Simulated assay, not measured.
Amino acid sequence: MIERNLIRERTSAARARGRACGSRPKMTSKKIKQAKLMRNNGMSQLEIAEILGVGRTTLYRHLK
């Protein structure tokens, strides 16, 4: 319980200093543009996901 409160305090302090929490985004704006171009050229979304090294769900989310 005490340890959880310490983690919560450190996390909120880091956010206040402008630190980003969590992992970096897998899809950059460059990858999104490339994926759209590939989709317009007739590639399947599964192929695009494999080439870009992201999951299908991640790709679907960015190509809505």
Rank of each mutant, 00 (worst) to 15 (best):
T57L: 13
R24P: 04
A14R: 11
S44C: 08
G55A: 03
E3T: 15
I32T: 08
S12M: 13
S23P: 14
R15M: 09
M1T: 14
I48L: 04
Q45D: 06
L46F: 12
A16F: 10
E50K: 11
Q45T: 00
R19N: 13
E9Q: 15
K36L: 06
T11K: 15
R56Q: 07
A20R: 09
N40P: 08
R24W: 00
R10I: 10
L59R: 03
M38G: 00
I32F: 02
P25I: 04
R39S: 05
I51K: 11
L59K: 02
K30E: 04
S23D: 10
A35N: 05
M27A: 00
R19H: 13
M1D: 11
S44V: 04
I32P: 03
S44D: 05
I7G: 12
E47Q: 06
A49W: 00
T57W: 14
R24Y: 01
I48Y: 00
G18D: 06
E50P: 10
K30L: 08
Q45W: 07
R17V: 15
M43K: 07
A13G: 12
T28W: 01
I51H: 06
R15I: 02
A35P: 04
A16V: 09
R17C: 14
S23T: 13
E47W: 02
R19K: 14
Q45F: 06
E9H: 15
R39Q: 06
R39D: 10
M43F: 02
S29G: 08
N40E: 07
E3D: 15
K30Q: 08
T58R: 03
K64L: 12
I51S: 06
R15P: 09
I7W: 10
T28F: 00
V54S: 01
R4M: 14
L37K: 10
A14M: 10
S23E: 06
A13F: 12
T57Q: 14
T11M: 15
K30A: 08
A16R: 11
R15K: 07
R56C: 05
R56Y: 08
R15Y: 02
K26I: 00
M1H: 10
M1Q: 11
N5G: 13
E50G: 07
L52C: 03
P25L: 03
A14T: 11
I2N: 09
N40W: 07
N40D: 10
A16W: 11
K26R: 04
I32H: 05
K26C: 00
L37Q: 11
I7N: 12
L6S: 14
G42Q: 07
T11A: 15
P25K: 08
K31A: 01
K30R: 04
E50W: 01
M1E: 11
N40I: 09
R39H: 09
R15W: 05
T57E: 09
G42Y: 05
K33W: 09
